Simulated assay, not measured.
Amino acid sequence: MQDIGSAPRLTGSAMVFTPQGRVVGSVSGGCVEGDVLERAREAILNGSPAQGTYGISDDDAVAVGLTCGGTLEILVEPVDIHTFPELVEVMESVRAPSPQPSPLW
């Protein structure tokens, strides 16, 4: 995620959506997650990345609740252990009783 202006989360925030439907992380503190998850479902189904931009001047931003005045640029990308070998380490960290910060973010 990249933010321009005021945004609820820092640049580089990440969210994982598993094939089982589990969500870990946040890209906006909740205001655009629903739309991002829909883009994630579509990316998983068609195997292609997608990009979304949300800003206060966009009708979509108001519809999903982005009222912070900034702009978020979101990249949604399907990954697996072949395209993102670090995925195993990230998921092990998430599953740990006390998740340790991942070196990836």
Rank of each mutant, 00 (worst) to 15 (best):
M1G: 07
Q2N: 11
Q2L: 14
D3I: 15
D3A: 08
D3V: 15
G5F: 06
S6I: 13
P8M: 07
R9P: 09
T11A: 08
A14G: 04
M15W: 03
M15R: 05
F17Q: 02
T18L: 09
V23T: 12
V24R: 03
C31I: 04
C31W: 01
E33L: 03
G34S: 05
G34N: 02
D35A: 00
D35H: 06
V36S: 01
R39P: 01
R41L: 07
R41V: 12
R41E: 12
E42F: 00
L45R: 10
L45P: 06
P49Y: 07
P49S: 09
P49L: 09
P49K: 09
P49I: 07
A50V: 06
Q51K: 13
Q51D: 14
G52A: 13
T53A: 06
G55Y: 06
G55L: 09
G55R: 10
S57E: 14
S57P: 05
A63K: 11
A63H: 11
L66H: 04
G70M: 10
T71C: 05
T71M: 06
I74S: 01
I74V: 15
E77A: 07
P78F: 03
V79E: 03
V79L: 05
I81W: 00
H82I: 15
P85A: 05
P85I: 10
V88T: 14
E89K: 08
E89M: 06
E89D: 14
M91L: 13
E92F: 05
S93G: 12
S93M: 10
R95G: 11
R95F: 13
R95W: 14
P97R: 12
P97N: 13
P97E: 14
S98P: 05
S98W: 11
Q100G: 11
P101Y: 10
P103K: 15
L104H: 15
L104I: 15
L104P: 10
